[in-house]
Simulated assay, not measured.
Amino acid sequence: MTRPELIDNKPIQAKESDPPNKPLLLQIERLQTYYPVRNGVFSNTVSHIKAVDDVSLSMYEGETIGLVGESGCGKSTIGRSILRLENPRSGRIIFDNEDITHYTQRQLKPVRTRMQMIFQDPYASLNPKIRIFDALAEPLIVHKLAERREVQRKVDSLLQLVGLPRSASNRYPHEFSGGQRQRIGIARAILCRPKLIVCDEPVSALDVSIQAQILNLLQDLQDELKLTYLFISHGIGAVKQISSRIAVMYLGKIVEVAEAEELFRNPRHPYTQLLLSTYPAPDPTLRTNKKMIIRGDVPSPAHPPSGCRFHTRCPYVQERCLKEEPVISEGHHTVACHYPLTL
């Protein structure tokens, strides 16, 4: 990697491009989701964990955006905030032309049929005391998506769609392997025929061979059901396989967004280069020129550094980085860095 822009001290601007020729499905604008830190006998709020801090992102119908970063950077909180499982502190969430930021639970009920979630731990997301049939039938009945006489047929059809036999509906979660339980979780996510599915590290708890099967299943279902995915993971390899675009997150902020192939060939933020330097890419052309050595630990999200949040660990830090927070650039390859990397 070279940094010619350090000579004239001017950041490189991304090349402008038109948005994809698809309808806009989701737009989050300057989203903030904080968690209070309480102390003392009266549990007074003394600080806030800034899990998501001023994040903006757009998603188009039919695409998959991979959201990648270290554990604790706020990836899952973004997904939960989009689904309104967490209440954002500020910002806007516009889904399918509706501003759902301040919707009540009653207002959210019809919206939830159009946006679903696949959880990381498939066993914890299933009630161990009820049969799989009951777990899949309940949403169909609650949302009035099927008559009672049609429920069995719809459940059988769902199980076949995710690669499980019809007989699975009469069994309990503990009778399945991890990969099979995740297939059940996927069946539950698609049963309402949603437009958007938030996949919160859906393969991280599975064996490598099973991961590939689940990723292939997600891609097949996307093509067949016209789904849009927000795919959250700390594993850069899985994100590359399934994503059309990738957003890189660090300490509550998105620092880079680009098409998957472009991000691997030309990572422009130092933190992205760090992530890719740990990825054993089989194609030598997709590897960074050298391994990055990063000093220090991730700062506390309760007290993030001033200026660029990555400056405490960045090998290219300059005086400006300590004081001035970078603004993400515009275009098809955006980066929030005063001195972006270039090949």
Rank of each mutant, 00 (worst) to 15 (best):
E259M: 12
A146M: 02
E138M: 10
V257G: 03
G235F: 11
L225F: 08
F264I: 12
Q219C: 11
P139A: 04
V155S: 07
K226P: 02
K195S: 07
S209Y: 09
A146N: 02
A212R: 14
H234R: 04
A247V: 09
K195D: 02
R181M: 01
I186Q: 08
L251F: 05
V257Q: 06
P270V: 14
Q222K: 14
S243M: 11
L230N: 03
G178R: 11
Y250W: 04
K195P: 00
I214L: 06
E224W: 07
R188P: 08
L218Q: 03
I254M: 10
Y250A: 04
E256S: 10
L217E: 00
L218E: 06
A260R: 11
A212L: 12
D207A: 07
Q152T: 11
F176R: 09
G252N: 06
E201L: 12
Q182K: 11
V208H: 12
V248F: 08
P173N: 08
V162E: 07
A260I: 08
V162C: 10
V198Y: 01
Q273D: 06
S209C: 05
D200K: 13
N266A: 14
P173K: 13
I210M: 10
G178A: 03
G185Y: 09
S243P: 13
I141R: 15
T228D: 08
I197S: 02
L275E: 02
V203E: 10
L191F: 02
V155P: 04
L140V: 06
K226V: 02
A258D: 11
S233I: 07
A135D: 02
G235Y: 06
Y271G: 11
S209M: 09
R166H: 15
E261W: 09
D207S: 07
S167F: 08
V151W: 10
Q211L: 05
V155A: 02
A247T: 09
M249T: 04
V255R: 10
G237V: 13
G163N: 13
L164S: 05
C192S: 15
E259A: 14
K226H: 15
E224Y: 01
A205P: 03
L206E: 01
R183N: 00
I232F: 05
I141P: 00
V162R: 13
